[in-house]
Amino acid sequence: MDARRHAGVYERAGVRAEVLLTGEGLRLRQTLTGPLAELAPDPTQEYDLVPVSDSLFAFLAPESRTWTPVTFYTLPTGEPYVHYGVRAAPKVA
Rank of each mutant, 00 (worst) to 15 (best):
G34L: 07
T74W: 00
E46T: 14
E24M: 08
G23P: 02
W67I: 04
T68M: 12
P41F: 07
A89V: 10
D48M: 09
T33K: 12
W67C: 04
T44N: 07
L75Q: 11
P62F: 03
E24A: 14
V50Q: 13
E63F: 09
R12A: 11
L60K: 13
T71I: 10
E79Q: 13
A13M: 03
L32I: 11
A58Y: 00
L56V: 12
G25R: 06
G25L: 05
L28S: 12
E18D: 01
P35R: 15
A89L: 09
D54P: 01
P51D: 08
Y84E: 03
T66G: 01
P41H: 11
T74I: 06
G23N: 08
Y10W: 04
R29G: 05
A88T: 12
A89C: 09
T33R: 13
T68N: 06
A58P: 02
Y73W: 13
Q30E: 15
V15H: 03
V52P: 00
T74V: 14
R65W: 01
L75N: 05
V15L: 15
H83I: 02
V19L: 11
A17P: 03
R12F: 00
G25D: 04
F72T: 04
G78V: 12
T22G: 02
S64Y: 04
R12G: 14
P51M: 05
Y10G: 10
L60N: 03
D48F: 07
Y10T: 09
Y84F: 15
E46N: 07
F72C: 07
T74R: 13
P80G: 04
V19E: 05
T22Q: 01
L56Y: 01
A17Q: 03
R87Y: 02
L32H: 10
Q45K: 15
F72L: 06
V15K: 08
G14Y: 07
R29L: 11
V19Y: 01
G14N: 04
D48H: 12
A37R: 14
Y47Q: 12
G85P: 12
E11D: 07
V50K: 12
W67F: 09
G14C: 05
R29I: 09
D48N: 10
R29N: 05
L20Y: 02
A58I: 01
S53Y: 02
D42G: 06
